[in-house]
Design a binder for these strands. Structure first.
Length: 239
DNA sequence: GCGACAG
DNA sequence: ATCTTGTCGC
């Protein structure tokens, strides 16, 4: 029986920065960094958030893709207010409430979540992808566009070339070239997934562009939702 | 003490 | 994240 990492973890909004760090320290041991995840997932979801700083608004989007065709088969958004200030390393507390609300609005249950941000590659080894994995119980992967922690050498210039991302003497992720000659992305395990497996999934999601199709579709959706929220009066909701 | 710092 | 023109290259 594949483990889901124990009993469900509720999402609890922290009162301040110190409490947020304590929550991460407490939950980090419950992450499953090995997996394996689904051998051949039928669906993969992408999550992303867009901000309108000046209006104190945010839109969280989830798109569910057919893992083979990469067509969008389901999607949901949630427009709301940032739930926490932006503090590097505590990023999850800002976006999670809206992301969870969007996930709740899906009509299907994706088999894998690809997050816009890191998982294990985090100062306390508990980035957004890990937290989202524990709370949803789903396998998750973190894909960051820029590093938060760690150092590396390489990777080679071609699609598929990669190098270990190391921090404090441990491998916390993989720096992966998803297209020939483009800047690499930073892949790390979120939950219920091994690193090699995560890298394979990301490559399967990047047949053409630097970023996974999941991230690209979710990005377009949350931007559109934010624009609509401004055009249609400004009331929240998500439909 | 000084800088760095996912989105 | 977001604010933004032009520019290099396929």
């Amino acid at each position: 029986m594949p483990s889901t990492g124990g009993p469900p973890v509720p999402y609890l909004p922290p009162a301040d920065v110190a409490e947020a760090r304590r929550v991460q320290e407490e939950l980090r041991s419950r992450v499953d960094l090995v997996g394996p995840g689904p051998a051949a997932p039928a669906t993969v979801a992408g999550l992303d958030v867009a901000y309108a700083q000046d209006r104190d608004l945010l839109a969280a989007a989830v798109t569910v893709l057919d893992a083979t065709t990469l067509d969008v088969v389901d999607e949901a958004v949630c427009v709301g207010r940032p739930a926490f200030p932006y503090v590097p390393g505590l990023f999850a507390f800002r976006e999670m409430p809206a992301l969870l609300a969007a996930l709740d609005r899906l009509t299907t249950r994706p088999e894998l979540l690809v997050c816009d941000g890191h998982g294990l590659a985090h100062p306390r080894r508990f980035g957004l992808a890990c937290h989202l994995g524990l709370v949803t119980g789903l396998p998750t992967i973190g894909v960051g566009k820029t590093p938060l922690v760690g150092s590396w050498t390489g990777p080679g210039p071609e699609r598929g070339d990669s190098a270990d991302l190391c921090d404090e003497g441990e491998v916390v992720g993989r720096v992966l070239r998803t297209q020939d000659g483009v800047r690499p992305v930073f892949v790390s395990v979120g939950h219920r997934m091994g690193l090699d497996e995560a890298v394979e999934r990301v490559l399967a999601l990047t047949p053409r562009y630097r970023l996974p199709e999941t991230t690209r579709t979710a990005d377009r959706l949350c931007r559109r939702a934010l624009a609509d929220a401004g055009a249609s009066g400004g009331d929240l909701g998500g439909r």
